[in-house]
Simulated scan of single mutants.
Amino acid sequence: MADVPSDAPQHCPGTSSEQAGKTSSCQGCPNQNLCASGATKAPDPAIEEIAVKMLSVKHKILVLSGKGGVGKSTFSAHLAHALAGDSNKEVALLDVDICGPSIPRIMGVEGEQVHQSGSGWSPVYVEDNLAVMSIGFLLSSPDDAVIWRGPKKNGMIKQFLRDVDWGDLDYLVVDTPPGTSDEHLSIVQYLSSAHIDGAVIITTPQEVSLQDVRKEIRFCRKVKLPIIGVVENMSGFVCPKCKNTSEIFPSTTGGAERMCEEMNLTLLGRIPLDPRIGKSCDEGKSFLAEFPESPAALAYRSVVQSIQAYCLSEGTQGESAD
């Protein structure tokens, strides 16, 4: 960390302040750019506390999307369900979409309450080996709006990672909001010392979605977050009765496959539209359990197997490095 000169401006906000380098009193200070960049700020002690907490979590997977409405939370829920399908695995799903917490409804635990014990907050259990945590459990009503600025959101994410009694986990799946904002920076920062296996990026086939996904990919590369691969969601509509496929969202520029080729990424798979997925989410049921032989369920399982293979290979590399 660079030294701050003794002749700092009279109303200097301090190098550890969120306003460091940004106030009118900072104008003309030789260290203005340094302070504004955050380089003078001491690291958040919570990062190391979270690293210790996460020692009991083998694999951490973030689910990202460039825009809303592409099925990111639906995918996160089904990824968690699929991983927990192995009764020998302990799985948790963390919802950090602070302003739009849909995971409690999708997982069928809406209205449940979070309890506190000596070891921290207890997550809500969907199955014996599948736990869920969301701000939705802390609201008095599912219709309550969360109107928070960035620092309060960041504090909530910090609490989820540090104060929840996750126990020993094989997989922690983190459902994030769309975009590249406060929540994304916070989750990457707080897990920076805890090894994130990588991110799964969700898109739909049309170019308007791919445009935003490219931004998400560049965000991951900028913050050095590994990318497990890309999932093309809503990739055609398979009629449950006649089994014919229709292109609801045509891929005018080659879809996720072309984008992955251009950006040197893995296309994990394509998941077709199925109206029963939305119905299952509304009812809080697992689509994979309800319709296990459907084309969409088979596509989900194929994608999940690829994610598991990636995580296991990463774990093997980590062990050999040690």
Rank of each mutant, 00 (worst) to 15 (best):
F219W: 09
I187M: 10
P240R: 02
R214F: 06
K215L: 01
K222H: 14
G198P: 14
T266A: 13
P205E: 12
N233M: 03
T266N: 08
N233H: 04
V188F: 05
R218F: 12
D274I: 08
G236M: 10
S251G: 14
E261R: 14
C242G: 11
G255D: 11
E283W: 01
G284K: 04
D182L: 05
P275Q: 03
E216S: 15
I187Y: 07
L225H: 10
I187W: 06
E183W: 13
P250Y: 13
N264M: 05
G179S: 10
I201E: 05
D182H: 02
A199P: 13
C242K: 10
H195F: 12
L210P: 10
Q206S: 05
P292I: 00
F237N: 02
M234R: 08
I201V: 15
I227G: 11
G229V: 03
S209V: 07
I277D: 02
K241H: 15
L185W: 01
P178Q: 09
I196P: 12
A299M: 03
L273Q: 07
C242I: 11
K285H: 00
I202M: 13
E261M: 11
C281I: 01
E262K: 14
Q211T: 15
L191C: 07
K285M: 05
M259V: 00
K215N: 06
M234V: 11
R301L: 15
Q211W: 01
P292M: 00
K241D: 14
E216H: 06
L268F: 12
E262G: 04
C239F: 03
S294Y: 00
T204C: 08
I277G: 01
L265F: 06
R218K: 14
N244R: 11
F287Q: 06
G255Q: 12
P226N: 13
S246P: 08
A297F: 02
I187E: 09
S246H: 14
I217R: 13
E247S: 15
T252W: 00
E232K: 09
G179D: 11
P295D: 12
I271A: 09
H184W: 10
I271E: 06
R221V: 00
K224Q: 10
S209F: 08
T266L: 14
A296P: 10
M259Q: 01
G278M: 05
E183F: 08
A297H: 02
M259K: 04
P250V: 11
G179L: 10
P292C: 00
K224F: 02
F237L: 15
V208E: 00
R301E: 13
T180C: 03
I202H: 02
L185I: 13
P205T: 10
E232Y: 09
K215R: 15
P250G: 09
Y300C: 06
N233S: 01
D212Y: 02
Y300S: 12
S280R: 03
C239D: 15
L265Q: 09
K243M: 09
V188P: 04
P295N: 09
C281A: 14
R218T: 13
V208G: 00
C281P: 04
V200N: 06
A199W: 09
F291D: 12
S235C: 14
A289D: 13
R301A: 02
S181W: 00
N264H: 14
A296G: 12
Y300R: 11
S181Q: 04
M234W: 08
S294P: 05
S186R: 03
Y190F: 15
G254S: 01
I202Q: 02
I277S: 03
N233F: 04
M234D: 09
